[in-house]
């Protein structure tokens, strides 16, 4: 991985609001998460993923020296984004392919696990989450970390540096709002 940019440095730039750094960081995190997911799939008997472990491990591997808390927060944010992107892309592709060929597609990549949730619902959730992002970026991030990375409330509080009480409050509200939006438009 000699061509890997300095993730620590990129994270610092991201945490100070550098959009370019974010664009360079995402593919790095994506490659790492994918290779870890592959490794986990090869090794395990399960047909699901321990996403939390993967993200933690990616962090350990990519961020060699200690970074400040804001950077760590951004790493998890980026990782959650990547997870969401991969899963939702796959769901959308499935829906498109289904319409086209009427066949359930095989995952293109052995790293990708098909979630239990029906793809229609995942896509609806993704749309609602994008809407929520415009209203409350914080609530949207909490949903990403909880749902796509699988962090618990205390872990989310830790990563986002929020109190558990506010994470719980935001999470409950976000979930109710997303649910309302999805069922309302369905």
């Amino acid at each position: 991985m000699t061509d890997t940019p300095d993730v620590t440095q990129l994270l610092r730039q991201v945490s100070d609001g550098d959009e370019d750094a974010l664009a360079r960081l995402i593919p790095v995190v994506y490659r790492e998460l994918r290779s870890l997911a592959r490794a986990q799939r090869r090794k395990g008997t399960s047909d699901t993923l321990n996403t939390t472990a993967i993200v933690h491990e990616a962090y350990e591997r990519l961020v060699r020296s200690s970074v400040d808390y804001a950077s760590r927060n951004h790493f998890f944010h980026v990782a959650a984004r990547v997870m969401r992107g991969v899963i939702i892309d796959n769901a959308r592709k499935y829906l498109t392919d289904k319409r086209g060929s009427g066949q359930r597609p095989l995952p293109l990549d052995e790293a990708i696990v098909v979630p239990d949730d029906p793809p229609e619902r995942l896509v609806a959730l993704d749309d609602a989450l994008t809407e929520l992002e415009a209203l409350s970026p914080r609530q949207a991030q909490i949903v990403e970390l909880r749902y796509f990375v699988g962090l618990t409330i205390p872990e989310t509080a830790e990563v986002m540096d929020l109190s558990e009480a506010s994470v719980k409050r935001d999470w409950t509200a976000a979930r109710a709002w997303l649910h309302k939006s999805i069922t309302g438009t369905a």
Partner: peptide, 25 residues
Amino acid sequence: EAHDQTESGLLDHPIFDRSATSDDA
């Protein structure tokens, strides 16, 4: 109303449920 529907199923678990995988993990 959405909040009160206990069996909604939406977002009740992470997309890949850790508790379902923890043994394996």
